[in-house]
């Protein structure tokens, strides 16, 4: 028999935003990376693993943010803030390229307490951004649905800041053009 009941986590969806200590997160994240390291052979595999983990987080965070905002618009700036507590340091468009954007973050939360490593742990964030519409607001302020397939990757730049490079899939640009 099909049971209809309110899921136990329903009230949590509506609850106000809460916080936990940053170190608790840092400890958990470091454990996650250490565990992932035991399961991979190369740095590339580690990046892929962290991205995989991030994808799930990103998808759920977007879902949650939309539920909270109760609007049809999907405001990604707000999403970034709700996850990381502050707006990203800057957003830049890559010159000579229509489909690439960069989010620059001087001290990403996930890299706090982590010393230089062969792999930029912000790969986790990169993965998390993939299914969500990364800064699509800039493209046309037409945020109907979160269907902005894009490739996101994390890099270090010369000044030591972390750069998330976002490359939208061609169909997104075509759609934006049609809508403009």
């Amino acid at each position: 028999m099909l049971k209809l009941r309110r899921p136990p986590c329903f009230s949590q969806l509506c609850a106000a935003q809460r916080v936990v200590s940053q170190s608790a997160f840092a400890f958990l994240f470091s454990e996650m990376i250490q565990y992932s390291q035991t399961r991979v052979n190369t740095a590339d595999e580690l990046i892929a693993k962290l991205e995989d983990a991030g994808v799930g987080v990103g998808r759920r965070a977007l879902e949650l943010a939309c539920w909270r905002e109760r609007s049809s618009k999907r405001e990604t700036r707000a999403l970034w803030k709700s996850l990381f507590g502050a707006h990203a340091d800057s957003l830049q468009k890559v010159q000579d390229s229509d489909d690439e954007f960069m989010i620059v973050e001087k001290e990403p939360l996930v890299n706090a307490f982590i010393s230089s490593a062969p792999v930029n742990c912000a790969a986790f964030v990169a993965g998390g951004r993939t299914p969500s519409p990364p800064e699509s607001g800039r493209l046309g302020r037409r945020l109907a649905a979160a269907q902005f397939p894009a490739e996101v990757s994390a890099h270090d730049n010369e000044e030591g800041a972390t750069v998330l490079l976002i490359k939208f899939a061609p169909e997104v640009l075509e759609r934006e053009k049609r809508q403009a």
């Binding site: 809460r18 936990v20 940053q22 997160f25 565990y35 983990a53 987080v57 965070a61």
Partner: peptide, 20 residues
């Protein structure tokens, strides 16, 4: 202490458990 969103924390932990 410095704080982060509890959701980021729970979702990250969820990702860890799923991975395991």
């Amino acid at each position: 202490v410095d704080k982060v969103s509890a959701e980021l924390f729970s979702l990250t932990y969820g990702a860890v458990v799923t991975q395991l």
